[in-house]
């Protein structure tokens, strides 16, 4: 397919970290099938370091590829490092995505924050990177799915 580069296609064809961790320390989702993309991330945390992460994604090729590469990226990171990961970094890690795809299909930074928010809430922790983050903001955020008319 001409639309995606080789690295994107590789992550799409052979995605890493698929699934859902058993008894995860944190789990979060972002997006909705109505809008065409939804991502769930579950994480395992030890001493503030993400030791494992798995994802499940409903979405197109770039949604799956970006989920795969994003989970690769955060495994081994500290919580604060993971909170600082941006969609731009994820896209760069993939070697770029078609412009039209970036806005809608890269959900990972929000999904990561949601999973960490869940972890923080359950474990009574606070992180600077979560300041002002509202995991439920997605409903309003994504209303109308940002579809162009």
């Amino acid at each position: 397919m001409g639309m995606y580069n080789d690295k994107v296609m590789d992550h799409f064809m052979n995605p890493h970290n698929i699934g859902e961790l058993e008894n995860p320390d944190g789990i979060g989702t972002y997006g909705s099938p109505v809008c065409g993309d939804m991502m769930q991330i579950s994480i395992r945390v030890e001493n503030d370091v993400i030791t494992d992460a798995k994802f499940k994604t409903f979405g197109c090729g770039s949604a799956i590829a970006s989920s795969s590469v994003a989970t690769d990226m955060i495994i081994g990171m500290t919580i604060e490092e993971a909170l600082a990961v941006t969609n731009k970094q994820i896209v760069n890690e993939l070697g770029g995505l078609p412009a039209v795809k970036i806005h809608c299909s890269v959900l990972a930074d929000h999904a990561i924050k949601s999973a960490i928010y869940d972890y923080a809430t359950k474990h009574g922790k606070t992180y600077a990177g979560l300041e002002g983050f509202d995991p439920n903001a997605e409903e309003d955020d994504h209303e109308g799915c940002d579809i162009e008319e």
Binding site: M1, F12, M13, P33, G36, D37, F58, G59, C60, G61, A63, I64
Partner: peptide, 13 residues
Amino acid sequence: FIEGEAMLLYLDM
């Protein structure tokens, strides 16, 4: 429960 472009790309492969 799945998305069309992803199916299309896998079929194309």
